[in-house]
C-alpha cells in the first residue's frame, strides 16, 4: 500500500516535462491530480522510475471557450470545470455528468485530462468526450497532434498516447443548436465506479447514445429517424454487442437490462430536453 521508489520532477515548463518524457519514455509517468495514478502506485500496479508533476503549470491550468469547443488544459481540475460559469448553458452534458465524477473531495484535485488519459471505461469524462465527438491534444518533442476521441481511446486504461507524448488539453464540442442532452449513472454509492453510465444527445431526428462501464471503452451509436418500436430492437442489439461481464457488482444479464431500460429513458429525456430548448429559444 505504499508506492515503490521513484524520482520526482516538478516540471517548471511543458518543455521540461516533454524533455523528461523523451529521455525516460515508458519509465516516466505524468502526474497532475493523481487521484487514479496515486492509487495505482500505492497498489504497485505501476512502478515508474520518474514521476513528472505538471500540476503547477500555469500554461496548462486554463479552461477556455473557443467558439466551437471548450478547451480544458491538463492541470485544470474537475472542480474548476464544474465551476466554469457557462457550463450549464454551453456544455449541458458536462453539467449533468460532472457531479457524478468521484466526490467533492476528489474533484478538488482530480483533473479533467487525467481522467481522459487514464481512460477507465467506467469514467464519465471519457464517455462525454466520446459522445460529443471531442478530441485530445497530444504534445511531444516531435510536435503536437490532435486525435479524435474515437482514435485516442483504445480500450481499458489504454490510449493512443505514445510513451514520449503527454495530453496537454482536451476539447469538448459545445452544445449543438437545438440539441437536448441527458446523463445517468448506476453505482453502488453516488460517485463510485459506474456499473453503467449513459449519455445521450438528441437533435432533430438523430440520436447519439453513449454507454460507459460495460465494454472496455465508451461505446457510441448514432441512429437517425428511427421508428418508435425500432429503438427497442437497436438497444437490445447494443446490449448484446457490448458484451458486459458478470462480476461482483452486477451480472451480465442485469447490465444488458440496464442498457435496454435506462438507454431508452436517457434518450427520451434528451429528446424532451431538446424540445424544452426549442421552446425557450
Amino acid at each position: 500500500m505504499k508506492p515503490k521508489g521513484f524520482e520526482y520532477l516538478r516540471a517548471h515548463s511543458v518543455e521540461q516535462a516533454l524533455d523528461s518524457l523523451a529521455s525516460n519514455g515508458d519509465d516516466a509517468k505524468i502526474i497532475s491530480g493523481g487521484n487514479s495514478l496515486m492509487a495505482m502506485l500505492n497498489f504497485r500496479l505501476l512502478e515508474p522510475k520518474v514521476l513528472i508533476d505538471i500540476s503547477r503549470l500555469e500554461a496548462l491550468s486554463g479552461i477556455e471557450y473557443k467558439g466551437d469547443y471548450l478547451e480544458v488544459g491538463a492541470a485544470a481540475t474537475q472542480a474548476q470545470l464544474q465551476a466554469w460559469p457557462g457550463l450549464a448553458e454551453r456544455m449541458p452534458l458536462l453539467a449533468l455528468a460532472v457531479p457524478h465524477i468521484g466526490h467533492f473531495q476528489t474533484r478538488s484535485k482530480g483533473t479533467v485530462c487525467g481522467s481522459i488519459a487514464h481512460s477507465d471505461p467506467s469514467s464519465e469524462l471519457p464517455l462525454c468526450l466520446a459522445l460529443l465527438g471531442g478530441s485530445v491534444v497530444l504534445r511531444s518533442k516531435r510536435g503536437e497532434k490532435v486525435l479524435k476521441a474515437a482514435d485516442f481511446q483504445l480500450g481499458m486504461l489504454s490510449t493512443a498516447c505514445a510513451d514520449d507524448e503527454m495530453v496537454v488539453a482536451v476539447r469538448f464540442p459545445v452544445k449543438r443548436q437545438g440539441a437536448g442532452y441527458a446523463f445517468t449513472e448506476v453505482a453502488r454509492r453516488k460517485g463510485d465506479f459506474a456499473i453503467i453510465a449513459i449519455a445521450a444527445e438528441a437533435v432533430g431526428g438523430t440520436i447519439r447514445l453513449g454507454i460507459g462501464g460495460v465494454a472496455d471503452k465508451p461505446a457510441v451509436r448514432e441512429w437517425s429517424d428511427l421508428a418508435t418500436d425500432a429503438l427497442d430492437d437497436k438497444l437490445n442489439e447494443l446490449a448484446w454487442e457490448l458484451g458486459g461481464n458478470d462480476d461482483i457488482h452486477a451480472s451480465a444479464k442485469y447490465r444488458r437490462q440496464l442498457v435496454r431500460r435506462l438507454g431508452r429513458e436517457v434518450i427520451e429525456t434528451a429528446q424532451e430536453n431538446g424540445v424544452a430548448v426549442k421552446e425557450t429559444n
Binding site: M1, K2, Y8, G34, M38, A39, L51, Q105, T106, K109
Partner: peptide
Amino acid sequence: EHGICGCCTVRIDGKAVRACLTLAVQVD
C-alpha cells in the same frame, strides 16, 4: 490508502483532498 474512504482528508490551499493520494513533496 487508495482514495475510497476519505478518512485521510486534509485541506491543501483550502481545498479538501485525499492525503493518501498526495505526495509529501507535492505540498512544498
